[in-house]
Amino acid sequence: MISAHVTTPKLVVSWLALLVLTFLSFGTSRLGLGEAELVIALAISVVKTLVVLFIFMHLVEQRFANRLIVILTFLFIVLLVTLTVADPLTRKTFPPRPDPAASPYP
C-alpha cells in the first residue's frame, strides 16, 4: 500500500519551500501588477496547499480513498465559487450593484 515515504529531510525541504513560496507571494504583491496579482497569489497558495497536503499530511503515502476526498472537496469548492461569481461578473441588463443611496448597509 505504501509506495512513497515521508522522511525528515523531505519535511525540512517542504518547510523551506513553503517559506520561500510565502516570500515569493509577498514579493509579487509589492510589484503593483493590479488584477494579475490576485491570480498569482492564489496560484502560489494552491502550490503551498499541495505541499502541505502531500508531505505534511502524508497524502503521498495514503490510499486513494483519502485522496478522492481531497479531489471531491476541491471540485465542490471550484463549483461553488465559479457559479456564485458568475452572477456579478456577467450582469449586463441588471444594475451591477445595489444603489448605495437606497441602503448604505446591505
Binding site: F76, I77, L80, T84, V85, L89, P96
Partner: peptide, 13 residues
C-alpha cells in the same frame, strides 16, 4: 469554501 464564495461574489461586485 462557502465563505470564500461570498468573498469572491462581493469582491467581484
Amino acid at each position: 469554501g462557502a465563505l470564500f464564495a461570498v468573498y469572491a461574489y462581493y469582491r467581484g461586485m
